[in-house]
Computed example of a mutant assay.
Amino acid sequence: MSTQQDKRIHFIGAGNMASAMLRGLVSSGFKPGSLSCSSPAEAETKRLVDELGISASADNLEYLRDCDAIVLGVKPQILQSVCQELAPFLASADRQPIVISIAAGTTTQSISSWLKQDPDLLPLVRSMPNTPAQVGMGASGLFATAAVKPDQKALTQEIFEAFGIAVWVEDESQLHAVTALSGSGPAYVFEFIKGLADAGVSLGLQPDVSRQLAEATVAGAAKLCAVSHAEEIAGLQRKVMSPGGTTEQGVRVLQSEELTATVRRAMEAARDQSLYLAGEGPALAKN
């Protein structure tokens, strides 16, 4: 068992993402007795207590003493009030726990100011997880402030790897690109799966059969790509395509319709909206 799995971790919030993270932590070996959460949603916390054996409270401050990490798992619109509630505790704490935010579009500068902490001294990680965390296959981007110590960074890595992969970015501004890629990406993939399934129906398949084939095809291709990470994606693609065969004809259509350029434009739009929501860019024109 990793020494990190003895660390005390408190989650403020018990919504879908916080719940997915807690389930991942327990399933990966973190001790339920070292995990806790707080939320006014009693039904959500009771479900986690019954399922995972963790501790829970409606009081955000109850389990903070001796915490090694505090995960801010609330919606961005209430994050400021939660931080202001935590500020007196952090000001008087004997030791500084690492603070981890999963709130999209909220900068470390804003969080530090709401916590009334010097941003150069507060160990703070801003993260961008995504919804496949709910099935243990998340992809998270992480940014650490300069005050994060190596052991705190290692703990954060292990927390996020409990429900998928975790990668670090060197500049906080890169989280906008992470948002556009892995944060919003599941919706792009769902759109492609829907396109495959709908096209299969138009070619004569039953809807349920077509959807199952579409889901399994995308999941299998993604898994094959992941286990063949050292190989170029184009090389994997060529292995499916025989000269003059069916796949080659289908890929030619996707290329002629500029699928890659369309995906890039979708990501640019998502990135620009992320900048706008963070107050770092203009509003996008609405069609």
Rank of each mutant, 00 (worst) to 15 (best):
L196R: 01
W168D: 01
G204I: 05
L196A: 05
Q212Y: 12
G195K: 00
V178E: 07
D198K: 09
K149Q: 13
E215Q: 13
D208K: 13
V178F: 07
F163E: 01
V178I: 13
P186M: 13
Q206I: 00
I193M: 06
A216C: 12
D208N: 12
Q152P: 01
V148G: 00
A154N: 10
D198W: 01
A197L: 12
I193L: 01
D198N: 10
E170R: 04
A199L: 09
T145C: 07
V148Q: 04
A199E: 12
E170D: 15
G200L: 07
L213Y: 05
F160R: 01
G164L: 07
E191L: 14
Y188H: 11
K153E: 08
A214D: 08
F192T: 02
G200D: 08
L213I: 15
T145Y: 03
P150Y: 03
I165D: 00
S210P: 09
E158W: 04
S184A: 15
P186L: 12
R211W: 06
D151M: 11
T145N: 09
R211L: 15
A180E: 08
E158M: 08
V201Y: 11
E191M: 15
D208C: 01
E215S: 06
V169A: 06
F190G: 01
L175I: 04
Q212D: 14
G185I: 07
L203M: 15
A187D: 08
I193E: 03
F160I: 03
S184L: 06
V178T: 02
H176S: 12
W168R: 02
E172I: 04
E158A: 14
L205W: 08
E191T: 15
Q212A: 13
A146Q: 14
A146V: 13
A180Q: 03
V169H: 10
A187N: 09
L196Q: 06
A214Y: 10
A147Y: 08
Q152K: 05
S184I: 11
S210M: 11
V178L: 13
E161K: 07
G200S: 10
A214N: 09
E191H: 14
T156L: 11
V209C: 07
G195R: 00
I165S: 07
A180N: 11
H176R: 04
A180G: 10
I159H: 01
E158F: 02
K153F: 03
I165T: 15
Q212E: 14
V178S: 08
F190T: 04
E191R: 14
D171N: 10
A162H: 03
G183R: 12
A214P: 11
I193C: 03
I193S: 03
V201E: 15
S184F: 07
V167G: 00
Q152G: 00
S210A: 15
L205A: 12
L155H: 00
A147C: 05
T145F: 05
A147L: 07
L205F: 15
G195H: 01
E161C: 09
E158V: 13
F190W: 11
L155G: 02
G164P: 09
P150E: 02
G183K: 12
P150V: 03
E170K: 10
G183V: 07
V189T: 14
A187F: 08
G200C: 11
T145Q: 11
D198V: 10
A162S: 15
S173N: 10
S182F: 08
